[in-house]
Structure formats: C-alpha cells, structure tokens
C-alpha cells in the first residue's frame, strides 16, 4: 500500500503519469507473484524510456531519484504479497508523512528516502545498513566527480557501475534461487 501511494504521489509531483499504472501491478499481484513480476518488468521498461529527466545534479534529475525510490517500494510490496487489509498504525503514520511532505520535491525526496529505508529495514533487517552505505558511496562519488560527469551517459555509467559492485558484495553468500512459475 505504501508503494502504491508513493507511486501515485511521485506521478503527481514529477508529471510522469506512467506511474499511475502502478495499481495494475498490484492487481496482478493479487492473482500471482510471478505475474506481478512480469507486469512490473513491463511497467519499469515503459517508465524508464518514456520520461527523460535532466542531469542528476539538477532538480529534474532528482525526480528520477524519486521514481527509483517509489519503484523499489512497489517491487518489495508485490513480491511480499499484496492483501486487502486495513493498514497498521505504523503504515498510517508513514502514509501520512508521505502525503504531508508531497507539496514540494524538497520535502518529498528526504521523506521518500526515509520511507524506503524503513521498508527495506522492515523486510531485511540489519542489511539495510549495506544499502545505506551504498547510497552514501554513490552520492559521494557523484558529488566528487561532478565536474567530470557533465554528460548524462557518464552519470548513468557511474550509477550502474557502483550498483554492480554492490551485487558483487551480495554474491558472496551462496544461496539457492526460486524458479518463476506462472500458474
């Protein structure tokens, strides 16, 4: 539910109305988790190439960050199972904070970042510290190299490159992965 509201508010703030399709993914999640994952795949592809924000160092670039945060929350919720239920007290507080902060991007961005941290912490516990560390590293790297990263392609390269390093850290743990089954 948090992801759905966050997406709708992000759609209003950024003017990228593709985010208004988020309820369709939630509807698919009611049927099956794997169906929702495929719907999410298409939704992200359409959203990514429909909207072209400016440089990461501009306010327009920050709109892209908003979309990334709300997309992560949507992904978490559809994978963990969507159910019709009355939100808990905590969720009411989070939704209230999101709605109140949604008047300007300057307030909405830190609140949405905090909500993303809260969602990841609730799901995975302490490893959220890795995520936060990685965000700080990404932000510091982008800030340090701001004079050399004028082109948006170069900015994209740095973002993706640092994300790949984070994946390599995650790959240390040997695990068995679940198969996709469409039923």
């Amino acid at each position: 539910m948090i992801g759905l509201i966050a997406s709708l508010l992000t759609a209003v703030i950024t003017g990228n109305y593709i985010l208004l399709l988020a309820p369709l993914i939630y509807a698919a999640a009611l049927k099956s988790r794997d169906l929702a994952l495929i719907a999410f795949y298409l939704y992200v592809l359409v959203m990514a190439f429909y909207f072209n924000p400016g440089s990461i160092y501009t306010l327009s670039g920050m709109e892209g960050v908003l979309m990334a945060f709300s997309t992560v929350i949507v992904l978490d919720e559809i994978l963990s199972g969507v159910r019709f239920r009355i939100p808990s007290r905590e969720e009411f507080l989070v939704l209230g904070a999101l709605t109140v902060s949604a008047f300007t991007i300057y307030t909405f961005l830190p609140v949405l970042a905090a909500v993303t941290v809260y969602v990841i912490y609730r799901r995975f516990g302490k490893p959220v510290l890795y995520t936060m560390g990685w965000w700080l590293l990404l932000a510091a790297s982008l800030y340090a190299a701001r004079s050399r990263l004028m082109h948006r392609g170069a900015q994209a390269l740095i973002i993706v490159g640092l994300a790949l390093i984070f994946i390599l850290i995650g790959e240390r743990r040997d695990v068995k992965a679940v198969e996709v089954k469409l039923r």
């Binding site: 992200v44 909207f51 990461i56 990334a68 990404l138 900015q155 973002i159 850290i169």
Partner: peptide, 22 residues
C-alpha cells in the same frame, strides 16, 4: 544518455543484493 533507467536499474540491483545479504 538517460539517467532514469540507470537509477531504476541501481534500485533493482540494490534491492536484490540486500535480499541476498540478508
């Protein structure tokens, strides 16, 4: 040369890595 797909990709990869580490 669009940073939005890069941010979304980073978000997805970050989520995956956190899930794996946890």
């Amino acid at each position: 040369g669009n940073i939005l797909p890069a941010l979304l990709a980073a978000g997805i990869m970050g989520y995956y890595s956190t899930a794996r580490l946890s």
